[in-house]
């Protein structure tokens, strides 16, 4: 699946923000090491590649550590359900998992919650007035779940939309942060997500510096939220650059 034109592996770790207050306990962060040996503010290497599925209008494959995702975009095409006339296009999203996506196993099923969150994250960025009466379908399949699945699906979906030539205001990038004890961990893996006290997921348009979706769950203190916001914004804009590079490479490869 690797080594195709348009493949790029790079990290998008944010710069470490200086804490406003000195920590009360020295080296308080160091009582915990991450399962994959990363630093707390270090993201997993991101491999992105467009054009993974030939039969789709546009598609992308993303591999962030063990999280592997394929997103296909179909359309704009005729709306299937007999729906009333609409001046603007419709967006239809679906996220599903393979049966072997996680080791605990189970039935590979549609993930309704992620489907609707993907829809909400994307709807603000797509210029739906450019495809009236029709539908754009965004389908994601999580091949392997290794943590931070939804942010990876969202970023990958925005690449697939670009690959399909759907008009958008900006790229969409998403990054999540887990809060465990006093520490914030960016781009958490499954084990970290399992024992987190709170999670923070931000979806933003990196060039416009605007947020399309922000989900905060669990226990958070205001300074932690501020720090998480800074971390996510920085990581999002860096991820945006990586995605832009991936698209440039794919475009120059197709020109040749």
């Amino acid at each position: 699946m690797a080594s195709k034109p348009g493949a790029a592996t790079s990290t998008y770790s944010p710069k470490i923000v200086a804490r406003t207050r000195p920590p009360i306990f020295k080296d308080s962060d160091l009582d915990w090491t991450r399962p994959d040996g990363r630093g707390f503010h270090q993201c997993r290497p991101a491999l992105l590649q467009t054009g993974a599925v030939s039969s789709a209008s546009g598609s992308a494959y993303a591999e962030f550590g063990n999280t592997k995702v394929i997103v296909s975009v179909f359309g704009p095409r005729e709306s299937k359900k007999a729906m009333v006339y609409s001046d603007v296009g419709r967006l239809n999203c679906n996220v599903s998992y393979t049966t072997f996506a996680s080791p605990s196993a189970g039935q590979g099923t549609d993930h309704k919650e992620y489907s609707s969150m993907l829809h909400k994250a994307l709807e603000g960025v797509i210029m739906t007035e450019t495809f009236p009466k029709t539908t754009v379908d965004v389908f994601a399949l999580v091949l392997e779940s290794g943590g931070s699945d939804l942010p990876v699906v969202i970023s990958c979906a925005s690449l697939a939309l670009v690959d399909a030539g759907i008009m958008m205001y900006d790229l969409i990038t998403a990054v999540s942060v887990s809060c465990i004890g006093k520490s914030l961990m960016i781009d958490p893996v499954t084990e970290e997500e399992g024992c987190e006290d709170g999670s923070f997921t931000m979806t933003c348009m990196p060039s416009r510096y605007e947020i399309t979706q922000l989900t905060i769950t669990g226990e958070w203190t205001t300074p932690n939220i501020n720090e998480a916001m800074q971390l996510c914004l920085d990581a999002c804009s860096k991820l945006g650059e990586i995605m832009r590079d991936c698209l440039k490479q794919a475009a120059s490869a197709s020109d040749e």
Partner: peptide
């Protein structure tokens, strides 16, 4: 053995 055709693979397959 189970063979799956998820909606990503072809324009003719729809979710559900």
């Amino acid at each position: 053995v189970e063979f799956h055709m998820p909606p990503i693979c072809s324009p003719t397959v729809r979710p559900g």
